[in-house]
Simulated assay, not measured.
Amino acid sequence: MPERHRGPHPQDAKCFGEVQLARLKTAAGELAWLLSRGYSMGASNELVGDHHQLTSRQRLAIARVVCAEEQVEERQAKQVPLSLLKEKTVIIDGFNLLITIETALGGGAIFNCLDGCCRDLSAVYGSYKIVAETRQAITLIGRTLEQSSPQKVVWLFDRPVSNSGRVAEVVRELGEEHNWPFEAETTDSTDALLSRSSDVVISCDSAILEQAKSWCNLACETITRQIPEAWTIDLTGKQHRGPE
């Protein structure tokens, strides 16, 4: 079994500890205010980050947490609840969903965002490693999905990313083991396929949510239902739950 974990970043206990939350919530609110008035993310994040003397990781967090008010409304209007996936085909942004759930299982920071999504601070830059949490994460996603009985579940993984073929194979293996309607593919155009799909998309990638016709918030549903002990951080004014 893999021994590597998708655990907390070494800086996160300090960056997102209780003493930092009030300042980060203020910064997130200011960033959202600027974005809602047409200012760019880059310039606004730099301005707010400099004013509050935020670290690069704290700046990344507030950028993932907030968006313009108009974007929040548009994304929520296209959101399909898990309960309405019965007999539907859903298309999963494989690495996006899987890494979020792996991070939650490994004790990493998960951020509740203005648009309702749950996001981590990881990024795939051409490299992905299967970790100790991978199989469990896929299993928990499957258990959450099976409650709504979708007709078909298609996982898409970026072919250029290392180990994409292997993780797609693991998805197919677990689907067969649990009798889930899983298909898994590697593709050179994952984002474009998700953005153009007429089926329900499962992703928390902001660029994809802007283009998708409909989407389901499976990451948050899985964490809420299956990983209640996850370290979730809310910079939007809701209740914060720290690690045990």
Rank of each mutant, 00 (worst) to 15 (best):
P81L: 08
A77G: 05
K25H: 11
I233D: 03
L114S: 10
Q20N: 01
S40C: 03
R241H: 10
C216A: 10
A104P: 04
L156Y: 11
V48Q: 00
A168Q: 01
T100V: 07
D199Y: 11
R135N: 09
Q71L: 11
V65K: 03
D158M: 01
L85R: 11
G49L: 02
Q136E: 15
K213V: 10
E74H: 15
A123D: 09
Q58N: 02
V153A: 12
R59K: 11
V154H: 11
S56W: 07
T89D: 05
E210R: 13
G106M: 00
D188W: 08
I99T: 04
L218I: 15
R196P: 00
K14S: 10
V161T: 14
K86M: 10
E244I: 12
D234E: 00
T186A: 13
I208E: 03
A137H: 04
K213F: 09
A77W: 10
C220V: 08
S197W: 05
E102F: 06
K213M: 12
S127D: 06
W231F: 08
K78N: 12
V167M: 06
P8V: 03
L174C: 09
A61H: 04
S197F: 11
G17I: 08
D115E: 08
R196A: 14
V124E: 11
L97R: 02
S36P: 04
G107H: 07
G94W: 09
K86P: 03
R64T: 10
R37P: 05
G242L: 13
T144V: 07
A192T: 13
I110N: 09
G237K: 08
Q151E: 14
D234G: 05
I223P: 04
A184K: 04
P8Y: 01
G106L: 07
R59H: 01
C15E: 02
E229A: 13
A109S: 15
D158E: 14
T26V: 13
Q226L: 02
G38D: 08
G242N: 09
A104K: 02
Q76S: 09
